[in-house]
Design a protein around this nucleic acid. Structure first.
Length: 137
DNA sequence: GCCAACGTTGGC
DNA sequence: GCCAACGTTGGC
């Protein structure tokens, strides 16, 4: 099973809001990048992703799960992009900030470190396990 | 608030 | 189809 990492600016959509959305979750729209779109399309229901706060916090704050696979984004006039639905699974006991990820040798190949602008990215099994441990989950 | 990195756009 | 110019993202 694949794992992922999604980014959001807290001022746009925060972890807190994701939690408040509850079990029915919410859509994840706004992706207008083809690499990110390909990752969204590859997601399967039940797969999990890290929820990362960009700009403010710059840390992984929790885990979300895919509850609806890729479907067209009605707010995209071009019709090229789409979105998935996520629900919050559980918060990190200890959020893992970017600077900690950067200095951890095992995480230095993460897309988050090397291509910080990609808003949806894959996470390897090893990275997933380590980050869960670091987050106290 | 600044600026580097990246993606996209548009002229040729 | 190439590449310069521009806009956006996101770390600092």
């Amino acid at each position: 099973m694949a794992h992922w990492l999604v980014k959001s600016e807290p001022s746009t959509w925060s972890w807190q809001q994701q939690v408040e959305a509850g079990a029915k979750g919410t859509f994840w729209n706004g992706v207008r990048n083809h690499s990110a779109k390909l990752h969204l399309m590859a997601m399967k229901k039940g797969e999990q992703a890290f929820f990362y706060h960009s700009n403010e916090g710059k840390e992984i704050v929790g885990i979300v799960e895919v509850i609806k696979e890729f479907y067209p984004d009605p707010t995209d006039e071009s019709g090229k992009f789409g979105m998935v639905d996520f629900k919050a699974v559980k918060p990190f006991k200890t959020p893992v900030p970017l600077d900690v990820i950067k200095v951890e040798e095992k995480l230095r190949d993460m897309v988050l470190v090397n291509n910080s602008r990609l808003s949806v990215q894959p996470v390897s099994d090893a990275e997933w396990k380590l980050l869960c441990k670091m987050g106290g989950v």
